[in-house]
Simulated assay, not measured.
Amino acid sequence: MIKIIPIRGIPEVKYGDDVGEIIINACRREGIELQDNDIIVVSQVIVSKAEGNVVNLDDIIVSKHAEQLAALTGKDPRHVEVILRSSRKIVKVKGGVIITETKHGLVCANAGVDLSNVGEGKAALLPEDPDKSAQQIRNRIRDLTGLDVAVIICDTHGRPFRRGTINIAIGCSGLEPLWDRRGEKDLYGRELRSKVTCVADELASAAELVIGQADEGTPAAVIRGYRYE
C-alpha cells in the first residue's frame, strides 16, 4: 500500500536554513517515523528560500524589453525582468502568460519565478541545481538519522492543451526518475516500444494532494510503500 503523509509544522524557511534538519525536526514533532526507502517530496520554494534564490523586486532594474512584455501581459515589469534573467529564451507569449525555456532547460510559465509564499515584494527563483539540492537534503537526512531515503524537489507546472496545473519533479536524488519498460510485453504478448514512465513526476504530482499550493503551510510530504530503484 502506498501512503502519502503530509509533513506539517515546518516553520518559515529563511536563507541559510538547513532544509534536511528542518524536515527531520518537523517529522519528530508530528510523530512521523521515517523509514528506509521513504520518498521525501519537497516544494521548490522552501529550497529556494534556504539557498538564497529570492529577490526583492524593488532592487530590480527593469529593461526596455521587460517593460514591453509587461505592457503586453499585464504583469509587474519587475517580475517580467526576473523572468527574462532566468530564461534562455522566450517560447511564447499569449494573454498574461510568458512561456520560457529556463536556464535548466525546463519549458514552463514565467521561468518558474514564483510570487506566492515568499512575502510581499519578493520573488523566488528556481534552485540553481535542483538535483544537487535534492542530493544535499538526502545526505543531510542520512547524516542525522542513518536512513536511506529518496528526495524529490517539486514545482507546479501547466500542461499544453490541458486545463489546470500539476506538480512535477525538477530535481531528485536516490531514485531513477524514469522507468523504461521498452522491450517488456503487454497482456497480449505485444512488445512495448515507447513506454517510458516518468516516475519522479508521478510521485511529485501525487504528493501535491497533501502539500497544496495555497495557505496549507505544508511544503513537504513523505511517500511510503512505493518500490523504486
Results as ranks from 00 to 15, higher is better:
Ala111Trp: 09
Ile170Arg: 05
Arg159Cys: 00
Gly52Arg: 02
Ser86Cys: 06
Ala200Asp: 13
Arg163Phe: 13
Arg88Asn: 11
Ala204Cys: 12
Arg88Ser: 05
Glu120His: 09
Ala207Met: 12
Ala204Asn: 14
Cys27Ser: 08
Lys14Val: 03
Lys94Ala: 11
Ile166Leu: 15
Val54Met: 11
Gly146Met: 00
Ile137Val: 08
Tyr188Met: 09
Val55Met: 10
Leu192Thr: 07
Ala150Asp: 12
Ala71Phe: 00
Ile32Glu: 02
Ser194Lys: 13
Ala169Trp: 08
Asn25Val: 02
Ile137Ser: 01
Val41Trp: 02
Val93Ile: 08
Ala134His: 02
Lys92Asp: 07
Asp215Met: 14
Glu67Asn: 07
Leu72Phe: 08
Asp76Lys: 04
Arg142Val: 03
Ile98Val: 07
Val42Tyr: 04
Arg224Trp: 00
His65Asn: 10
Ile7Asn: 15
Tyr15Asp: 10
Ala124Cys: 02
Gly16His: 01
Glu81Leu: 14
Ser133Ile: 03
Glu202Cys: 08
Ile32Gln: 11
Ile152Arg: 06
Leu175Gly: 05
Gly119Phe: 03
Ala50Thr: 03
Leu203Thr: 12
Val210Asn: 13
Ala214Asp: 15
Ala204Met: 13
Asp143Glu: 15
Leu178Ser: 05
Leu69Arg: 11
Val149Ser: 15
Leu203Tyr: 03
Ile170Met: 12
Ala66Arg: 08
Val97Ser: 10
Gly74Phe: 03
Gly74Cys: 02
Leu125Thr: 06
Gly112Asn: 13
Ala109Trp: 01
Gly52Leu: 01
Ala70Gly: 07
Ile46His: 04
Val97Arg: 08
Gly74Gln: 15
Ala204Lys: 12
Ala109Asp: 13
Ala169Ile: 10
Glu101His: 04
Ile24Glu: 05
Asp186Ala: 01
Ser63Gln: 00
Ala214Asn: 10
Asn56Phe: 03
Ala123Ile: 09
Ile39Asp: 12
Asp129His: 07
Lys14Asn: 09
Arg227Trp: 01
Ile22Arg: 08
Tyr15His: 06
Ile46Leu: 07
Asn56Pro: 05
Gln44Asn: 14
Lys103Ala: 07
Glu101Leu: 01
Gly105Asn: 10
